[in-house]
């Protein structure tokens, strides 16, 4: 990958990466006497070691994508678990942001570039910040008692584990009987065959060209353009409905928050009554 180091063998690269990783961990671990320079050097060495590991993987061939998938899915799952077990809701929201980054990585590995970016922008950039705003508005000082006690943790953990086991079972069956599950042909293939039959009957001469344009290669270079074409072509009505939904929820949220003068007056009287009591 790096043109400066074409002659380094994977073995040497791996040995260097391992050494750098060990040295970085030794520098970063608490050893009694702390120094800023040592920890910085440790971080730098750690980054170098990671780069070395990735380069080795690429040099050995093929494991790059799987390694990246493993890392990002681990990030997603571990921080997803941390989201639900963390006591403090603020930390929980921040762990959820990390989980979002892991999910975005998984989507990128799966070839959904636009969705990976959109997840980070929409969720981590907008929705999560809204959650944090509400937390700052509503969080009482310190940890509340209801954050330290959950309702029926054993039962729900068992339920979740059983659900996960059943899902894993059925997912594992997918590879056992490929004919049963994967009989659905790709839509592009269906479209192409439709177009071919249409062209055979001579009904629409433009059909083959249209089918060629629609051949949905998910991994095409102009991925975003094709996704946009699909979204605003075949699903245009749904886009309009989504726009209406956004508008309705906007108006609804405003209408619930501002409850009108009468309700405000009633609130003021009630709080005055409480203060007098």
């Amino acid at each position: 990958m790096n043109p400066a180091l074409p002659e380094l063998s994977p073995g040497m690269l791996l040995a260097g990466a391992v050494t750098a990783a060990a040295a970085s961990l030794w520098l970063l671990l608490p050893r009694g006497s702390e120094s800023r320079a040592a920890s910085r050097l440790g971080l730098l060495l750690g980054a170098l070691a990671l780069a070395g590991f990735i380069a080795t993987g690429r040099r050995l061939g093929g494991i790059g994508e799987e390694a990246v998938f493993l890392i990002v899915s681990l990030v997603a799952v571990v921080s997803g678990a941390a989201t639900i077990v963390t006591r403090s809701p603020v930390y929980s929201a921040i762990w959820f942001a990390l989980a979002l980054f892991g999910v975005a990585g998984v989507l990128l590995v799966l070839g959904a570039q636009f969705l990976g970016v959109a997840t980070v922008v929409v969720y981590a950039g907008a929705i999560l910040v809204m959650f944090l705003f509400v937390l700052m508005l509503a969080q009482p000082a310190g940890l509340a008692s209801y954050d330290r006690v959950s309702s029926e943790p054993l039962l729900s953990a068992v339920a979740g584990a059983v659900l996960l086991g059943l899902l894993t079972l059925s997912i594992g069956r997918l590879s056992a009987e490929p004919a049963a599950c994967c009989a659905v042909p790709a839509r592009s293939a269906m479209l192409a065959s439709d177009a071919a039959t249409a062209a055979d009957s001579g009904a629409t001469p433009a059909a083959p060209a249209a089918a060629g344009a629609v051949v949905a290669d998910i991994l095409a270079a102009d991925h975003v353009a094709r996704l946009g074409g699909e979204l605003f072509g075949r699903h245009l009505l749904a886009v309009e409905v989504a726009g209406v939904l956004l508008l309705v929820s906007l108006i609804g949220a405003i209408a619930v928050v501002t409850r009108g003068e009468a309700a405000l007056e009633a609130d003021r009287r009630e709080s005055l009554g409480r203060a007098v009591r």
Partner: peptide
């Protein structure tokens, strides 16, 4: 992720 979210929504109280 789905199962984790399910557990969270069942058991957390915040």
């Amino acid at each position: 992720l789905f199962a984790l979210g399910l557990i969270g929504i069942l058991t957390r109280r915040n």
